[in-house]
């Protein structure tokens, strides 16, 4: 019996220690975000590269995926609204669904799968190969040089791509409104503009920023904690991705809860 309590106590202490370390790391990264000294030429150069990798490079496939997937989803939502005789509320349904829920969450999943996994692997490989040690040896701050550009690009990419995805879904929504409700473009635009509020935009931006932050922070943190063995890299990536998806769900639940209160 004592062993069971010891075991549970050890797990709890380890968990609390992990949470404390993760929060401390987040605090350090956030603090460095506001320090002008963090923005040296090397950091800016990495930031530009990261923005290219996470926003520009993904754009063609994202647009294509967004158009097909987003249009189908919004089409289904419109069809449901018509079936349940909610045609007069179609504007607020589309705006609420697209801006508040689907666009940020879908983008977050996509960026997490693509860039989150890549960053987790990159940092884990750098840790194992001794490159992080080399940076420390040369007094190059890991947070400023490596982590901030990735975190900033993560935030920028999720916010930008969420907005783009929302626009694509709205275009898809028009095609379905035309098909099912024979709605003209002017009526569709009027319905949307009369339903959209600044809150919707702020909500999308705020939620996307939170997603973007954790999508980079958790893989970085997980990569940093890799033990120095090459076979530890897949384990670090696996752990990082599981933690990341849990964090995405927590943010989603918290955002839903915030809307309800």
């Amino acid at each position: 019996m004592t062993r069971v309590f010891e075991y549970l106590g050890e797990i709890t202490l380890n968990f609390l220690s992990d949470v404390y370390e993760a929060l401390r790391f987040s605090y350090l990264c956030i603090t460095h975000l506001f320090l002008p000294n963090s923005y040296h030429p090397a950091m800016k150069s990495i930031l530009i590269k990261q923005i290219y990798f996470t926003v520009i490079q993904i754009l063609p496939s994202f647009l294509l995926l967004g158009f097909f997937f987003g249009s189908l989803i919004i089409g289904y939502v419109i069809t449901l609204a018509i079936n349940y005789e909610l045609s007069n509320q179609i504007g607020s349904i589309i705006i609420g669904f697209v801006f508040n829920e689907f666009a940020p969450l879908f983008t977050a999943f996509l960026i997490a799968l693509r860039s989150g996994a890549a960053v987790n692997t990159e940092i884990a490989v750098m840790q194992v190969s001794g490159e992080l040690n080399a940076l420390k040896e040369f007094n190059i701050g890991l947070i400023d040089y490596l982590f901030l550009p990735r975190i900033i690009s993560g935030v920028i990419s999720v916010v930008t791509l969420s907005l783009i995805f929302a626009m694509i879904m709205l275009v898809g929504g028009y095609l379905f409104s035309l098909l099912y409700m024979n709605m003209s473009l002017n009526t569709y635009m009027y319905t949307l503009f009369s339903s959209i509020e600044i809150e919707n935009l702020l909500y999308l931006v705020g939620k996307s920023m939170a997603f973007g932050f954790v999508i980079m922070l958790i893989p970085i943190y997980s990569g940093l904690r890799t033990i120095k063995a090459f076979n530890a890299i897949p384990i670090a990536v696996l752990k990082g991705m599981v933690r990341l998806f849990i964090a995405i769900f927590i943010i989603e639940v918290l955002s839903l809860w915030l809307r309800l209160i």
Partner: peptide
């Protein structure tokens, strides 16, 4: 910041 090592533990960034 007084010493910098050239060793296998400080490789160039890949």
């Amino acid at each position: 910041g007084t010493h910098v090592a050239v060793s296998p533990h400080t490789p160039l960034l890949s």
